[in-house]
Computed example of a mutant assay.
Amino acid sequence: MTKLVLLGGGHAQLFVLEAFARQRPDADIRLITPDALTPYSGMLPGVLAGHYRTRQACIDLRPLAERAGCQLMLGRAIGIDSTHRRITLAGGEVIDYDLLSIDTGSTPQRPDIPGAAEYAQPVKPIADLLARCALATPRAVSVLGGGAAGVEVVMALHHRWPAAHCTLIERGATPLGGLGERLQRSIGAELARQHIDVVTGAAVTRIDANAIRLDTGRTVGSDFTVLATGAAAPDWLRDSGLALDARGFIEVGATLQSTSHPEVFAAGDVATLSASPRSKSGVYAVRAGPPLAANIARVLAGQPPLDWRAQRHALMLLACGRRHAIAARGGWVLKGDWVWRWKDAIDRGFVRRFDPQADSETAAG
């Protein structure tokens, strides 16, 4: 019987489990993931802001795996030997596979800045950030990185701690660089409305317990600093033998199979489509789910996998801390409280699809 290992419980992998729950393949299936509760990225800014409890933004993999006839194993990968088809876990276990699907997500990009390790908290893992938030009553908050994650996090923390002075620091010329002028203007107006300072065109040279030093000579007060500086590939991929892109992510073709090892599938942030790279976004991970599930099932059935073409433009829904959101796709931008309610319905619907028992009551605040 084919040994199929699902490594990671990311968004795309959920569709694989859902498909197997409908029709179980003739395979020995194992899901390996660090935690039975997998967070849904779309709701995490709402958790930081206080609109949701943590459990509402997580999907319990245990009942989903049971319905799929899949053995759930809690563990974290630290190495893959693609030649011998083996996975090594942090606990020392070595797992063999015939077919492997990887959806572990990315890791935070940790800038080489003095003081960052001691005084700055990465956005991921979200559990660590939430734990630190629970113990903090900061007077000055700074978020480093002006991408989508950075702008959502700084507004969420502003909503959480309205008395704190909040600053967004972006090395480039503007937050959300490259995502369109209309969206940049809308986000800029919202940040200004919330009196969140935006510092652009400056690199951080040092992070201290109560301040951030910039290469412009400016010092920004901050006793709670968050890193939202982008996605990096997991270190353990380097010696895997799998074909990787220039940034260290798994290179896959249109079938979502490794370009070097067809018995390995990969999707979500850990993978890069070789012919048409897309941004590291939960939207594309979700879109990759159905073709990933279909192609794994086809390979298990002895059929050739089918090509998938990722959409070029995806809907972006940005939470603005308060119950207000901005939607953008292509050249159009919409904003309002009603956009937040729309986003809220989409997010809750996604979680309930895979975890019908998820608590759907809104948290106070």
Rank of each mutant, 00 (worst) to 15 (best):
L4I: 06
V5D: 00
L6Q: 04
G9M: 02
L14Q: 13
L14K: 11
V16H: 01
Q23F: 07
A27N: 11
A36G: 13
T38I: 00
T38G: 02
S41P: 01
L44W: 00
V47S: 01
G50T: 12
G50W: 02
Y52S: 07
R53S: 07
R55A: 02
C58E: 03
D60F: 15
A68W: 12
G69C: 12
G69I: 13
L74M: 06
I80T: 05
T83I: 12
T88F: 06
A90Y: 04
G91H: 11
Y97R: 11
I102D: 13
D103P: 09
G105Y: 10
Q109M: 08
D112M: 00
I113D: 03
I113K: 04
P114C: 12
E118N: 14
Y119G: 11
Y119T: 07
A127L: 12
D128V: 02
P138L: 12
A140Y: 13
A149M: 04
G150S: 00
A156M: 03
H158V: 05
H165Q: 06
I169W: 14
E170C: 02
G178P: 09
G178F: 08
R185H: 14
S186Q: 01
G188Y: 05
L191C: 13
R193E: 10
Q194Y: 11
I196S: 11
G201I: 13
A202S: 10
A202C: 14
T205W: 07
R206A: 12
I207T: 04
A211F: 13
V220L: 10
S222A: 06
F224K: 15
T229H: 10
A231K: 10
W236Y: 15
G241W: 00
G241P: 01
D245F: 01
R247T: 02
V252D: 00
T255W: 07
Q257Y: 10
P262C: 08
D269E: 15
V270R: 03
P277S: 04
S279W: 09
Y284N: 00
Y284H: 03
G289D: 11
A297G: 14
A297F: 08
P305M: 08
R312H: 07
H313W: 13
A314R: 01
G321R: 02
R323F: 10
K335F: 15
D337K: 14
W340C: 00
W340L: 00
A345V: 12
I346F: 05
R348D: 08
F350A: 05
D355H: 11
D355G: 09
P356N: 05
A364C: 15
